[in-house]
């Protein structure tokens, strides 16, 4: 399980790196999306992996060791929503820059040959 999780984070992150190093704005936004998946999973993994142990406590007297760590989950939940907002902001910048400069290159101008 752990090995699969680690490989998943690695592959997603690596694809993200490749994409954000590309010259086109669309490639950059997709790269950021992939990186945000990887980073969210990574932060989530800080609470270790738990199967069938959601942090939902049936009563007040429980053993905390029997439940998944709720803290990374809370942090990742807000990260997902903020990630959506920044994606929207980036998208608007992307189409705005394209409208202004006529180019979808990340520098706002086509590279000199």
């Amino acid at each position: 399980m752990e090995i699969v999780f680690a490989i998943a984070v690695g592959v997603t992150f690596g694809s993200g790196i490749w994409l954000i190093l590309r010259p086109r704005t669309f490639q950059l936004i997709t790269g950021l999306l992939l990186m945000s998946y990887a980073v969210n999973l990574f932060i989530f993994g800080m609470g270790r992996l738990w199967v069938d142990r959601p942090p939902i406590t049936p009563n007040a007297s429980i053993d905390p060791l029997q439940f998944a760590d709720p803290l990374p989950q809370g942090l990742v939940l807000t990260a997902i929503v903020i990630g959506f907002a920044t994606t929207a902001l980036y998208l608007v910048m992307m189409i705005g820059a394209r409208g202004l400069t006529g180019s979808d290159h990340v520098d706002g101008e086509e590279p000199r040959k």
């Binding site: 680690a6 690695g10 992150f13 999973l41 990574f42 993994g45 992996l49 406590t57 007040a60 439940f67």
Partner: peptide, 27 residues
């Protein structure tokens, strides 16, 4: 980059979690 990230994740996952404030919230 992917490799480093994967190794880092794996290294964390195979170590026991230190005592965190999670228990506070759960209890």
């Amino acid at each position: 980059g992917g490799l480093v990230m994967a190794l880092l994740t794996y290294a964390v996952l195979v170590h026991p979690a230190p005592a965190t404030i999670a228990d506070f919230f759960l209890l």
